[in-house]
Design a protein around this nucleic acid. Structure first.
Lengths: 126, 126
DNA sequence: ATAAAACTACGACGGCTCTCGTACAATGGA
DNA sequence: TCCATTGTACGAGAGCCGTCGTAGTTTTAT
């Protein structure tokens, strides 16, 4: 290893996070799906653990949008890049926002019979 | 008057409203400002009562985005077009979402000393 | 050293968004 | 009838967005 300092990712500070930016980051079905999976996990998750219907470069793009708008934090570990939701910062800045968005996504998925793009599996029984 | 039937505006039904669409509609500072003013009023407001830093056609555009994504309802009365937030529908579909977004906008405006684009007046006392 | 795994950078493409100005339509009052 | 008020439709331009493929970098394992 060389402990490459260049492999540190830029994040907005808590004060720099804007509600418009957060809403924009969350207004895409694929990003909503990512955040949903991250919020449901107990610890950080590697990008590769997401089964998304887009190419790898597009996946990178979506993770970057989420990070640059302050929704998630990311860091490298080995060849993997781990991500987690910035729950503390978001709750401090916009109390209840993230929770109500995620709850809304769940309700919508239920309502639409999980045919929605932000649904995780859509693997219907038969 | 002729009670022109063509002057009826199309709105998505409650079931058609999508959380991604709502978030997208709310991810613009000008639209956030509109919704904020509408939510703060006790009754419907005419488009002309909004003092926005964009042209009239752009204002029309933003109101349409809000309406087409189910955030507001609009109807004509005379030469005026009145708008109001679809509070009931939104609360039923995504409980707490609208409230936390508006609260977040308020907190952000306070935090930024009302220098924010989603601030209503910015008219300091002086 | 070589190879595999994980992710990025870059350039490109089509499409959508925000913005505007100008011209037009509907309503209500003089 | 004529006109002022209010908002729309349309076309245009600049820019951003989501998507991709290809080539490259960093790390780990053999």
């Amino acid at each position: 290893m060389t402990t490459n300092a260049a492999r540190v990712l830029a994040h907005p500070s808590r004060e720099e996070i804007r509600v418009e930016g957060v809403l924009h980051a969350l207004s895409d079905p694929i990003r909503l799906r990512i955040v949903r999976q991250l919020a449901g996990a107990t610890d950080e998750q590697a990008c590769s653990r997401f089964d998304l219907p887009v190419s790898k470069s597009t996946t990178t793009h979506h993770f970057r949008v989420l990070r640059e708008n302050g929704v998630i934090a990311q860091f490298y570990r080995g060849t993997a890049k781990l991500s987690c939701v910035r729950t503390e910062d978001l709750d401090a800045l916009f109390p209840g926002l993230l929770d109500s968005v995620l709850a809304g996504v769940d309700l919508q998925a239920e309502r639409l019979g999980r045919a929605d793009a932000s649904a995780p599996a859509a693997a219907g029984p038969a």
